[in-house]
């Protein structure tokens, strides 16, 4: 038996928003420690990894590990039937999980709606992502990162990210001209959500597709801050941390042969 009740149902809506443009079908892997998802986009250039801890649910029950194969478009349609303030409960029979039950309860518990989503078999390749010491780790306001991606898309489909001790610089070069945005580290102790920090082992310069980065910024409503981790010739990690877990996006860089 699997059951996970999330008091903040709106969080599930936001999570779904942050993956559904990148991935159409995905396995939600459920275990006694929580729910996780790992999936590549169709072009296999980007990867999304989601982790929700069991403690974030009340209650959470999962007797044995199993996977829920979900079409995210279908799940999204059903999730639209939930109110923003609703408590959402996910239920499935782990021995023959051919459907996922979603229960939406309003705050006064007067209205309860129940939906069944048909599940599917998804043959998905999982990649092993090792713990990495990145050359550069940058924390910045998530809304700022979203704006930079949106602005630079006006100029080019690619962005070069340069990180040094003193600044992170985003540069785009296109047919109409060029553009760049430079951010310096700031420490706003009274407003930590607005701070920018750079931890640097060595300077890095990498080029990425703005289309994917822009897609990742759908995670912006999940967290005030975003973490960017970069190493030479390695995929970029973009992480949004939540109270209940995290969503991580990985993007392969553009590199010379």
């Amino acid at each position: 038996m699997f059951e996970a009740r999330l008091t903040q149902g709106a969080l599930l809506k936001r999570l779904l928003d942050s993956v559904k443009e990148l991935v159409t079908d995905a396995n939600f892997d459920c275990s006694e420690t929580g729910i996780s998802l790992q999936a590549m986009d169709n072009s296999h250039v980007a990867l999304v990894s989601l982790s929700l801890r069991a403690e974030g649910f009340n209650p959470y029950r999962c007797d044995r590990g199993f996977s829920l194969g979900v079409n995210l478009n279908s799940l999204n349609k059903i999730m639209k039937c939930a109110g923003n303030e609703d408590v959402i409960t996910l239920k499935a029979d782990d021995s023959s999980a051919d459907s996922l039950c979603l229960l939406f309860e309003n705050s006064s518990n007067e209205r309860v709606s129940e939906y069944e989503l048909k599940l599917m078999d998804i043959d998905q390749e999982h990649l092993s992502i090792p713990e990495t010491d990145y050359d550069a780790t940058v924390m910045m306001p998530s809304a700022e990162f979203q704006r930079i991606c949106r602005d630079l898309m006006v100029v080019s489909e690619s962005v070069t990210i340069d990180v040094s001790k003193d600044e992170i610089k985003f540069t785009a070069e296109g047919e109409l001209g060029t553009g760049n945005v430079k951010l310096k580290p700031t420490s706003t102790i009274d407003k930590p959500e607005e701070s920018i920090t750079i931890e640097l082992g060595q300077t890095v310069s990498l080029q990425f597709s703005l289309k994917y980065l822009s897609n990742f910024t759908r995670g912006t409503p999940l967290s005030d801050q975003v973490m960017l981790c970069l190493s030479d010739n390695m995929p970029l990690l973009v992480e949004y941390k939540m109270d209940i877990g995290y969503i991580r996006y990985y993007l392969a860089p553009k590199v010379g042969d």
Binding site: S43, E125, L127, P235, K254
Partner: peptide, 14 residues
Amino acid sequence: GLNQKRIAWFYLPK
């Protein structure tokens, strides 16, 4: 020019 790599170019299957 630079080429867009795939993610599996960097990480091995589990």
